[in-house]
Design a protein around this nucleic acid. Structure first.
Lengths: 146, 146
DNA sequence: TGTGATGTAAAATTTAGAATTACATCTTCG
DNA sequence: CGAAGATGTAATTCTAAATTTTACATCACA
């Protein structure tokens, strides 16, 4: 029960800013048109990305730009910025187990330990993909779509 | 938005069956008491595990048993059995992107390609953990809890 | 100082997950 | 045979989480 589409929307926004940010001012309004979701969601996402140092948004006047070089931005950072505990809550654990049963009393801890490895593997996997990779992929898909 | 607690409940059931299945008949009623969730959910989960060849449930008389050796059952198999497309839908993709925008038109495919790698990594990670590992961990936690 | 932006809180809506109800079916035992 | 104790599953209801919307405060520049 966990990684929502916020992460995908964030990537969409970053690709868009990268493509068009030099030609025009990219506002949350514009991004909301391209992504098809509410401007408020965009603002929340940009706000999170800003706090993580991934984008800069000048106050008052608006218009987002990407801060670090694309190779240095990983999917992990994006995901982490937008949904801080998506990864730690990757696999849901039932909280209703009976304390009267030895299995019920301890299953939570057992699962937590086992899942931690998986979560670390997932984090590593996300760290290996950079925004640069995504942008390259975007251009490849774009070229092929003609 | 994705891996539900069904997977955890399934593991709970399997550990329980492994611990007590030799002494008594483990019914869905009993498992529902230990897990704290509805007998129907347990039956659905056992039914999925049965189809995947992980447990056997004699018709009519009831009482679940584990089929293959514990080392041969991976978390991947369990997860797969219980929620066939949890992994392929690990990270949500927004479907509302505008077709009028080049980014919007192609972002779905771009994200799909990028996420596929992540999904494969996750699957590999889940394959590396066996039910035997979980049972060992359970006994370790049990010993430590005294 | 008015306009076009962003930043957020709070409420409403939608959707997915989980629980419940209901009933069909199966096997063994009295 | 037929009642009892199980599972199998469809259909419905309930609940919690995600998403969207509304509303309004704030900021910079012309």
């Amino acid at each position: 029960m966990q990684i929502s589409k916020k992460c995908s929307i964030a990537i969409h926004c970053l690709v868009f800013i990268n493509e068009y940010g030099r030609q025009r001012k990219v506002t949350s309004e514009l991004l909301s048109l391209s992504t098809g979701c509410n401007p408020v969601i965009i603002r929340n996402i940009l706000s999170s990305l800003k706090k993580a140092g991934i984008v800069a948004v000048p106050p008052g006047t608006g218009g987002a730009t990407i801060e670090p070089p694309l190779e240095e931005i990983s999917l992990y950072q994006i995901c982490r910025a937008v949904e801080p505990d998506a990864i730690s809550k990757l696999i849901g654990i039932h909280s209703s187990a009976s304390l009267l049963c030895p299995v019920g009393r301890n299953i939570g801890r057992v699962l937590g330990n086992a899942y931690q490895t998986v979560q670390e593997d997932l984090a590593d996997s996300l760290k290996r993909i950079s925004l640069q990779n995504i942008v390259d992929e975007y251009h490849a898909v774009l070229a092929q779509a003609e």
